[in-house]
Structures are given as structure tokens and as C-alpha cells.
Design a protein around this nucleic acid. Structure first.
Ligand SMILES: Nc1ccn([C@H]2C[C@H](O)[C@@H](COP(=O)(O)OP(=O)(O)OP(=O)(O)O)O2)c(=O)n1
Length: 835
DNA sequence: TAATCATCATAG
DNA sequence: CATCGCTATGATGATTA
């Protein structure tokens, strides 16, 4: 098949040569249609490439044909065969097999981007940066061996390059990055053009998407020696890294016929093959995918009728045009086919399908109808559309074909309407919005209700009426849920440093933002999940834990952020060895140049200075540069060593035979305080600047003082506090927390809590557990542990101190363990597609 | 009632 | 060998002020 294609290409290219040649001469009398069609290539010729002779080797994007056009239009020579050795000045290729590498080693072999950039900038850019050869052939065999053996080293999250290496191979990371960058480009491109209005609400929507994009590109760029007879139309092909528990990024339509889907694991897909049929797995072609997408967007953006080309993802865009931009359906269809033809052409073989309608949902559904390799126009106008057609249209979709309906929603719908299989069924069964809303919630219910009538909900339509705002970044985050296997907190701290560095220097810097709110989410292996999940280095089944923190003063200081993250980590009950995934988000982004925030930096420095005066007697280091960072990075082991000596730990050593449970000792050794103890003053800098926190602390202080005044050795002199809460939900947990804290603090200094108070306290805790609020118990336990640690150095020998330790270890922790099941790790949905 | 946080769900 | 399970966003429910 590929051979045939190549032939066609050759013929075309010769045929077209004369066309372009003519075109160049007859520039003045441009046929408008053709100008339109070819303007991306550059409607004016230039002499940019004069004197250069260019040869294309193998498969490229833009394809050989486009390169030919670009070269010729810009005054260069295009070499059809390399027979005339030495005559080529440049060879364009995406990659070279070793043999060719040797053969071409004296040529300037560059990737196609070089040509694109030359033409874009209208100058010959240095070729070295685009060189194909330099990267891996430069070093002869010795290095090759060492690098190939280095490649064999198993993934290790302690490797300083782990994060980057991982991202390099992660398809989902690429998808996210690409999407973000497309959105950014959209903003730059369209921010000055007026928004569309609802009033003028007759728009035609074209939803355009490559058919099985990754699979197509992987096929086109496959190693043809390895797969000489592979047939894309007949053989099931998937793109993946591995062989069994590896995700399928994309599978061709031959595979889909057998029931294979994107996201499925290879092993599962193989089970669906009929006897005798083999599944072909191809590697990812990230760079070529990117190139294909560039061509795709360039073409779409060159189409005058499109008011917007809204990026959905790397391979998918929504084009919006005024309804009267096209005369009739016929011309619209022609446009679609021209676009399809041109994209196929310029990506040398990638197919797009197009769904056309007058709402986003319908265009999306029409696209689904159009696939593979087609155009589908759906007219929702009841009068003009045959009822049968309508029924057939809606009847051909499964429930989760509706945008917004995923696994979870599908389950809910199935549960409520077991008989409903297609959207047509759902249309008939669910006539009113209320019943949908009661199952799916307010918004989703409405969305589905409208979608079934072919209308967009307000939120979805925002992409048309307010795309700039919608594409504006509101948060920055990274997730790593693969390859995470740490031994202890030291390793994790280092990793958090790396993440923080990545986020700050790569992301915050790129967008020139500060952040004032951080969220940390950890994935902890489910208690009943195997230590080694089915997927190699995967996360397996996990319980998620999140916590977030306001920074009060926006910052882009990696040190402050890293410290905060380390602190936050320790507030979550996840022992290092159970950690399977980390995600870090900056939820609130602040523009440092915004005049509103002009006092931010000043405030920051003031606070730092002020705090430094109180923390360090010697005012020598007055630098505003993160004192935290220094403390943290100078000696990450210091606090860890200290941890080992913490009183709780000693205590636990004594008691260890009695109490050893899933709330691991390790967690309690490493509760927030220990860190806070060591970097206490420094943390205050970040934490206390927060106004609200300050206020709360002041209030607490006030309350505490009052409480202390009113109490003697024990301040709960009656059944007072805990009894009512058991029955009245309205009682405020925060206040209880604060009171308990006072109570603990006071009684630590003396002989411990009064028996009666303790009794009620335990009763209260039991109540909390019974009412499924173990997380409150956890918080109380955390708080008590914190208090113990804080007071260890002064009251470590007091009777009350020991008392409280025993209460914590012998009562509270076991209580939490007993009730863990209500807290976390119930059954949990099957994470994997399989199973 | 609004603000805030943790959690869930979705898409590619 | 395996394998590269990301990330922005909106909705929702619980809790607090
Ligand atoms: N779970 C998924 C879904 C998608 N993708 C990648 C591979 C796809 O090629 C690309 C585009 O996703 P689409 O949903 O558009 O799927 P395809 O393009 O593969 O197929 P089609 O659009 O024909 O259904 O995103 C992925 O890696 N993992």
C-alpha cells in the first residue's frame, strides 16, 4: 500500500510541478480559489532558497510533496533522486536508519521543521539545531554501548532526570502539553478579534478530528523493514509502549471492529482477536504527531470562512462559521471535502473526518457518525429532516457517546434505566429534565437533557462565545502516578524539590505568574491492593488524599513552595513506601505585573525582614531570597535525624510489640510537627503571612487565655462539651478542636487529663467513628501528636505527657485502625480499564 | 447565602 | 523485559463564617 502511495505521490508531484511553475509565472492573475487553497505555502514566491538543493528521504510531515512545493516556490532546487550524488545541499528526513546515516554522514541532514522555520522567518536558519544525525550518531560504538546499557536501567524515581524522562514518554503528558500550547496560541491569535454574540446565533459548527491519529502516524512512520506487509485497513494495529498491561493510545479501525478501544490494555485487546489474527503494536511517534498537527492547524486557520478554529486537542478542532458563509449544503460539503483532501495531502496520508451541524453537541455526534474517513452533516430542523432519519441518527449512539457522559455517569444511567441502550431510547424514556437532574445532578442533568434535543448547555457554549477567557489558564499542575516507589521521606523530599523546581521554573516562569494556593494530592496504595500492581511501575488501586494551603502572599519561590509541599505531605497519612502517585497544583495564579499586586513583593520582603529579626538574632543574612530554601536544601537530613529521636518514636519503640498497625509508625514519626519543629520559624514566614490564619490564631489565643483562666487541673468539669455534640450536629468541630488542644496543652504540664473528661472524650471519638467521621478523629490525633511534639522538649518528662502519649497510641490509633474501612479504601472502582 | 475545601468526573 | 496511568476544568457536597 505504501508503495502504491509513493508512486502516486511521485506522479502527482511531477504533475503539480508544472502547475506551480506556471503559477509562479502567472502570479498576477490569481485564481481566487486556488490562491486560497495554497496560501499557506506562501502565495508570493521568494528567492530564499536560491542555490540550495534539497532532497527528501523517507516519510516526513509536511510530506515530500509539500516540501517540494515549498522549495520550488522559494527558489530552491528539489532533487527527486539522489542519484546525482553530491548535488544535494540539504537532506530532509524525520529519522534515518543506521545504514542511511552512514551514507549521509557528510550531508546536512535536518528535519522538516528547518524548512518550515526558514520560510516562516524568511531567512536561512542555522541547520545544526535541526540536525538528525548529530544527536545519536556522533559518538561511535563505545558510547553507544554505554547508552544502550543505560537505557536498560529500570525506571527509578530517585533519578534526578526521572520526571523529564517519564514525561518524554508519556502520551498523556504530551496531550496535555499540546493542548495547553494550542490554547495559548489561540489566545495570541484571536485576542483582538471581536467575540461572537448569541443574538447572531446562526453558526455552523464543523467538528474536525483525525481518524485514530496516533495509530495513523505510527503506521506511516513505521519501520518498513520490520513490517513489510502491514495493511492499515485490514490488520489490527495499536500504538503502545509495552506488551501486556500497557495502555493502547490509539488503535486503527480494523482493531476497533474487533472491539478494541483506545485506553484498553494490550493484553485485553489480544483476548479479543479471532484465532489466527495477530495484533501489531507500533511505537509512539510524538514528534511526527506534532508535525502532523501543525499542518492540520495551519490549513484550518487558512480557511477564510472559519471565524474561529477552536483547539480541542492535538488532533481535533472545532471550526465556527457564520451560517451564511456558505451558500448551501452543497458548497459546505465541498468545502469539507476540500479540507479533508488537503489535510490528507499535506500530512501525506492522515485522514480527518468532519461532523457538521449547528450546535456543538450535534457536530460532535455527527463527527462520530462521519468516522471513519467521512463527512456527516446533521440537520436538527424537525421539519426538513425525515423522522426516520432522526430516529436512525439518535438510535445509532451509545449512551456514553454523549459528550460529558463517561464511565460513572453511564453507570448511573444504566442503573436507573436498565433497558435504555441508545440515545434514542433515552430520548423517549427521559422526557423531563427533572428526572435526569435527580440522577445526574443539576448541571449534568440539564446538559444531557439539552443534548438530547440537540442543544448546547451554557457552559459548553462558552467555547464559542467566550473562548479567550475559557482558554486563559487558571491553574498549573503536574501529576505523576507512574514509577513512584520511594523508600523514605528523604527521597520524597528530594522529589518534591524536583517537582517544585519544574513547576516554578518551567511553568510559572513560562506563564509569568505567581501562585498563592497549593494543593497536594497523594495516591496511597489501597490496603488490599498488591504491592506490585499489574502494570509495571503503575499505581495500582489507590486511595487519594488531598490537602491544600493558602500562601497568603503569592510567590514563585521554589524554596518556599517546596517547603510548603514537604509540610503538606506530612499532614497526610501516607507512609513513604505506600506512596504511588503525587500531584501538585497551583490553584490560584496571580499576575505579578498587575498593578493590583504591586505591593505584593514589598509586603513579602517586609514580612521576611520582620520575621528574620525575630528568628535570627544576627541580622547578617538580610537577603530576601528564601531563607526557607536555604534551611531546607542545606541539610535535608538534619530534620530527618531529629525525627528518629522524636519522643513519640521512642515511645513507640517501647510499645511496638503491642501496637503495630496500618497507620504506620512511620507516619507518626513523621507527622507535621517534626518538620515544623526544625523549620518552625521559617514556616511561620509562609504560613503566618496569611491574614485569615493570623486572625484565627489571634482568636484562638484569646479563647485559650479565657479557657486557661477558667480551669484548673482539668477544665472540663462536667459532662459539658462532648455530650451535646454527640447529638447536635451543629456544634462546631473547629471549636472542639481548639478546646481539646487547650485541654491537652494544659494537662500535659500536670498530671494528665481527668478521668471523667477522658471518658467523655473517648465517647466523643467513638461517636465520630460511628457516624463515619474518622477523618475528624484523624485530625484530632494529628493535632494531639503535634502538641506532644511541640511540648516534648519542655514537658517530655511530665506525667501528663506520658499519659497523653499512651492515650494516643493505645486508644486513638487503634480506634482509627478499627474504623479505617469507613474512612478510606472501600472497594474503590476498578482503576484499570481491564479487570 | 457565599466562601472554601476536598472530592469526583470528564476528555483526549 | 516490563512500562511511561497527564492535567485543566467544572460540578458537587460538606463545612464554616
Ligand atoms: N485514552 C486515550 C485517548 C486518546 N489518546 C490519544 C491517542 C489518540 O490518537 C489521540 C486522539 O484521541 P481521539 O479520541 O480523537 O481518538 P483517535 O484519534 O485515536 O480515534 P478517533 O478519533 O478516530 O476515534 O489521543 C490516548 O492516548 N489515550
Amino acid at each position: 500500500m505504501s508503495n502504491k502511495d509513493n508512486k502516486v505521490t511521485e506522479e502527482n508531484s511531477t504533475g503539480r510541478y508544472s502547475y506551480f511553475y506556471n503559477k509562479k509565472i502567472k502570479q498576477a492573475e490569481q485564481d481566487i480559489k486556488f490562491r486560497k487553497q495554497y496560501e499557506t505555502i506562501g502565495k508570493q514566491t521568494s528567492q530564499l532558497l536560491k542555490g540550495l538543493t534539497i532532497y527528501v528521504n523517507g516519510h516526513t510531515i509536511p510530506g515530500r510533496l509539500q516540501i517540494h512545493d515549498m522549495v520550488v516556490l522559494n527558489g530552491g532546487n528539489f532533487l527527486h533522486h539522489l542519484s546525482s550524488k553530491g548535488s544535494a545541499t540539504h537532506i530532509i528526513a524525520s529519522s534515518l536508519p543506521p545504514k542511511k546515516r552512514l551514507e549521509f554522514k557528510n550531508y546536512k541532514v535536518i528535519n522538516p521543521q528547518w524548512l518550515v522555520d526558514c520560510i516562516k522567518q524568511q531567512k536561512i536558519v542555522p541547520w545544526q539545531e535541526y540536525s538528525i544525525i548529530k544527536s545519536d550518531i556522533e559518538q561511535p560504538s563505545i558510547l553507544k554501548i554505554s547508552s544502550s546499557s543505560a537505557n536498560k536501567t529500570p525506571p527509578n524515581c530517585n533519578d534526578p532526570n526521572f520526571l523529564i524522562d517519564y514525561f518524554k514518554h508519556s502520551r498523556l503528558h504530551h496531550l496535555s502539553e499540546w493542548k495547553a500550547s494550542l490554547r495559548q496560541k489561540f489566545i495570541e491569535l484571536y485576542q483582538d478579534i471581536p467575540l461572537l454574540t448569541h443574538s447572531n446565533s446562526s453558526y455552523t459548527i464543523l467538528h474536525i478530528d483525525f481518524d485514530c491519529f496516533f495509530a495513523t502516524v505510527a503506521y506511516l512512520f513505521r519501520d518498513k523493514k520490520k513490517f513489510p506487509t502491514l495493511d492499515f485497513d485490514k490488520d489490527p494495529i495499536v500504538v503502545c509502549h509495552g506488551v501486556k498491561n500497557s495502555d493502547i493510545a490509539s488503535c486503527n479501525y480494523a482493531a476497533r471492529k474487533l472491539g478494541i478501544k483506545n485506553g484498553m490494555w494490550v493484553g485485553t485487546a489480544e483476548k479479543m482477536l479471532p484465532n489466527g489474527i495477530k495484533l501489531t503494536t507500533l511505537p509512539y511517534e510524538f514528534e511526527n504527531i506534532d508535525n502532523g498537527s501543525k499542518a492540520f492547524y495551519t490549513i484550518l486557520q487558512s480557511i477564510e470562512q472559519f471565524y474561529y478554529v477552536l483547539p480541542v486537542s492535538i488532533d481535533e478542532a472545532i471550526c465556527v462559521m457564520s451560517k451564511n458563509a456558505m451558500e448551501n449544503k452543497q458548497t459546505l460539503l465541498q468545502l469539507c471535502n476540500a479540507v479533508r483532501q488537503r489535510i490528507k495531502h499535506e500530512t501525506s496520508g492522515c485522514i480527518v473526518s468532519i461532523g457538521v451541524s449547528d450546535s456543538l453537541v450535534l457536530a460532535r455526534l455527527a463527527l462520530k457518525m462521519a468516522k471513519p474517513n467521512g463527512v456527516f452533516m446533521f440537520d436538527n430542523d424537525n421539519e426538513s429532516q425525515d423522522l426516520n432519519d432522526m430516529n436512525q441518527f439518535w438510535g445509532s449512539f451509545k449512551l456514553d457517546d454523549l459528550p460529558g457522559v463517561g464511565r460513572s455517569t453511564l453507570k448511573k444511567l444504566r442503573y436507573k434505566y436498565p433497558k435504555v441502550k441508545t440515545l434514542q431510547d433515552l430520548r423517549q424514556t427521559c422526557q423531563d429534565i427533572i428526572s435526569l437532574q435527580s440522577i445526574l445532578g443539576n448541571k449534568l442533568g440539564e446538559k444531557v437533557y439539552l443534548a438530547l434535543r440537540g442543544e448546547d448547555d451554557e457552559e459548553s457554549a462558552r467555547i464559542i462565545y467566550d473562548p479567550i477567557n475559557m482558554f486563559q489558564r487558571k491553574s498549573i499542575s503536574i501529576d505523576i502516578n507512574w514509577g513512584i516507589r520511594f523508600k523514605d521521606m528523604v527521597e520524597i523530599d528530594k522529589f518534591l524539590d524536583i517537582c517544585s523546581d519544574y513547576l516554578v521554573n518551567k511553568k510559572l516562569a513560562e506563564y509569568n505568574k505567581l501562585t498563592s494556593s497549593i494543593t497536594l494530592k497523594l495516591m496511597k496504595r489501597c490496603v488490599d491492593a498488591p504491592v506490585d500492581p499489574p502494570k509495571y511501575m503503575g499505581m495500582g488501586r489507590c486511595d487519594p488524599f488531598t490537602t491544600s494551603s493558602r500562601l497568603g502572599v503569592p510567590t514563585n519561590d521554589g524554596g518556599i513552595i517546596a517547603t510548603e509541599l514537604k509540610h503538606m505531605f506530612r499532614t497526610l497519612p501516607v507512609p513513604p513506601v505506600e506512596l504511588r502517585g503525587i500531584s501538585i497544583q497551583f490553584n490560584k495564579l496571580v499576575d505579578p505585573d498587575d498593578p493590583k499586586n504591586s505591593n505584593v513583593k514589598k509586603g513579602l520582603s517586609l514580612l521576611f525582614q520582620k520575621d528574620q529579626v525575630t528568628t535570627t538574632p544576627s541580622p547578617s543574612s538580610r537577603s530576601i531570597e528564601s531563607p526557607l530554601h536555604n534551611v531546607e536544601s542545606n541539610d535535608p537530613h538534619r530534620k530527618y535525624k531529629r525525627l528518629k529521636r522524636s519522643p513519640v518514636k521512642e515511645r513507640e519503640d517501647q510499645l511496638e510489640s503491642n501496637q503495630r498497625n496500618a497507620f504506620q509508625q512511620q507516619f507518626f514519626q513523621e507527622l507535621p510537627t517534626q518538620i515544623r519543629k526544625d523549620v518552625q520559624h521559617d514556616l511561620k514566614i509562609t504560613r503566618k503571612v496569611n491574614d485569615s490564619k493570623l486572625k484565627r490564631m489571634k482568636e484562638e489565643l484569646q479563647r485559650r487565655e479565657n479557657a486557661i483562666r477558667n480551669m484548673n487541673s482539668h477544665f472540663m468539669n462536667s459532662d459539658s462539651i462532648f455530650v451535646p455534640i454527640k447529638f447536635q450536629n451543629e456544634t462546631n468541630f473547629e471549636k472542639i478542636c481548639s478546646m481539646v488542644n487547650d485541654w491537652v496543652r494544659e494537662t500535659i504540664k500536670e498530671k494528665g487529663p481527668h478521668e471523667r473528661d477522658l471518658h467523655f472524650f473517648k465517647k466523643y471519638l467513638n461517636k465520630l467513628c460511628d457516624s463515619d467521621r474518622v477523618h475528624f478523629v484523624l485530625r484530632l490525633a494529628d493535632m494531639i501528636s503535634v502538641t506532644l511534639n511541640l511540648m516534648a522538649h519542655k514537658y517530655g518528662n511530665a506525667e501528663g505527657f506520658t499519659e497523653w502519649e499512651i492515650i494516643l497510641i493505645k486508644f486513638i490509633i487503634p480506634l482509627m485502625n478499627r474504623n479505617r474501612h469507613t474512612f478510606r479504601t472501600e472497594r474503590k472502582l476498578d482503576i484499570e480499564y481491564d479487570i
